[in-house]
């Protein structure tokens, strides 16, 4: 478990490596351990790992041990916590987990599809208004989704769609950032020559997209899918505004209701901590599984240049 977490965090820490080369100066010494970059990386790893370690350790503590034993010592209550969590209101936690998977899986899939089609269209075709459409989308990238949640709620309320699965999925289908990435990636990965060659051979536009463009875009689409999946999995405000029925809640919202039950009720810390730990497991698993698709990047390339 902790090794999985370690890998995940190591990836998050990776950007720190970018800063490291600048810190070593002068001609690069050969065969010498680069202490400064290693140190920076280690610090970054510790910084990212410590909270994860806290969650892992705290999840093993019973309610009695949680605040009274040493922070990073394992407790004895993990099995009990798990059982309590599963028993809580007839296993509604797993319902939330399933909902999160549905929102994130289906939402990311739909949004990747839209991003692929529109990114390809924006990259390959020249038409009037193309740049305008693209610039509007760029403005959308700069707009934090948080401020859109309430207008989206009011719109969906007019269509009587609030408090339904669709109310959370629909606003997520169009992701400006996804379309932006789609276009950038299509421009880089789908050479105009290949498209032209397809036309010469008599393929229709849809066929060129589906058989030639799309396979070339796969690594980029995987990235978009992952971005969207993680964003939706962690999303809070949109479902918070849209949903009132707690059987449709995603994980984030469900755990929040466990914390806030009015001040006459102690917060269910142990359940929330155990629940949060389980909630990151699917994300880590997804990263590990999907990671391999990124390497396809190297294989693509159909024209000499």
């Amino acid at each position: 478990m902790s090794s999985l977490a370690a890998q995940n965090s190591a990836r998050e820490a990776a950007p720190a490596a970018g800063a490291a080369p600048g810190t070593t100066q002068g001609p690069p010494p050969r065969r010498r351990v680069a202490f400064v970059p290693t140190l920076v990386l280690l610090l970054g790893a510790v910084y990212c790992l410590l909270p994860v370690a806290w969650v892992v350790m705290a999840a093993t503590k019973s309610g009695k041990e949680l605040f009274s034993t040493l922070t990073l010592l394992p407790g004895t209550g993990f099995a009990d916590n798990l059982a309590d969590l599963t028993a809580y209101r007839d296993g509604i936690y797993w319902q939330w987990m399933g909902n999160s998977a549905l929102y994130a899986g289906l939402g990311a899939l739909l949004s990747t599809a839209v991003s692929a089609v529109s990114g390809y269209a924006l990259a390959v075709y020249r038409f009037r208004g193309r740049e305008t459409v693209f610039n509007i989308l760029l403005a959308g990238v700069l707009m934090p989704p948080v401020i859109l949640a309430i207008p989206q709620y009011l719109l969906l309320a007019k269509a009587d769609l609030t408090d339904s699965y669709a109310s959370v999925l629909l606003p997520l289908v169009l992701s400006p950032y996804g379309v932006y990435l789609g276009r950038i990636y299509a421009t880089a990965a789908v050479p105009a020559d290949v498209v032209e060659a397809g036309r010469m051979d008599g393929a229709g536009e849809w066929r060129i997209f589906a058989r030639i463009g799309l396979p070339m875009m796969v690594p980029g689409l995987v990235t978009i899918f992952l971005f969207q999946f993680v964003a939706i999995w962690n999303n809070f405000l949109l479902p918070y505004i849209m949903l009132s029925d707690d059987e449709k809640f995603p994980m984030t919202l469900g755990l929040f209701t466990l914390l806030a039950q009015g001040n006459s009720q102690p917060a269910l810390y142990t359940l929330v901590i155990t629940g949060s730990l389980l909630a990151i497991v699917p994300l880590i698993a997804l990263f590990l599984v999907i990671q391999r698709f990124w390497s396809l990047d190297l294989l693509s390339g159909a024209v000499k240049s």
């Binding site: 208004g129 719109l155 629909l170 606003p171």
Partner: peptide, 19 residues
């Protein structure tokens, strides 16, 4: 076709309120 695809993007969000 291209234009309509790009326009369709915007429509997905609008469709929600026209039903």
């Amino acid at each position: 076709v291209a234009t309509s695809i790009a326009v369709a993007l915007g429509a997905t969000t609008l469709a929600a309120c026209s039903s």
